[in-house]
Amino acid sequence: MKSQNPNLEIARINKDLSELDIKAYRSNYYPKVNLLGGYQHSKNNFPPGFSFTQNTTRNGLLYGFGISWNIFNGTYVSPNLQSARIEFINQDYRYNENELLLSSQLYESYRDYEANISLVRLETDNLELARENVNIALEQYQLGVINDIDLRAIQLKQIESETNLLVSQFRAKQSEIELKLISGSLTVSD
């Protein structure tokens, strides 16, 4: 699940890039091989009296290779290589830090999600009870057992329960979105 998180993946790539930097600096210690190739075609036309040869045409394939090895280059490679190594270690720490942060965020989000789901269940039960109370209260009101104020109070309880249920449902959805975002499983189809 963690491997799907883009931020963690970017941290991993940064680590890989710093490893490539080490390789690039280390390559300065190795000999270099240069290969070259080409094709030449030239044609010259000179007016009479200008040159001994009036027309020259050349065709030819060029190829070759060269080897160079820098034995001493002013001691600038070694500090750069050391810097690249330190940068790699830094990137490794950053990656581990991101991984730990992601783990804690995932755990926290999952806990919030579970808590909100439980709250939704609780509020649903609460609302059912509140509705039942309102039905009973209406009958009692018709019979004259309770007065206007009592009925209104029970009705307000129902409104409060419905509002609480809506809020808890919204929070549950929010935490679900957050959980999916952190885990990297949030897609357009969601």
């Binding site: 931020n7 993946e9 790539i13 979105i177 990297g184 949030l186 357009v188």
Partner: peptide
């Protein structure tokens, strides 16, 4: 770098979808 750019786009899309 290309891979990183892909992940950055994915992160932006995910954030937008959220």
């Amino acid at each position: 770098l290309e891979e990183a750019a892909g992940y950055q786009i994915a992160a932006e899309i995910a954030s937008l979808v959220a």
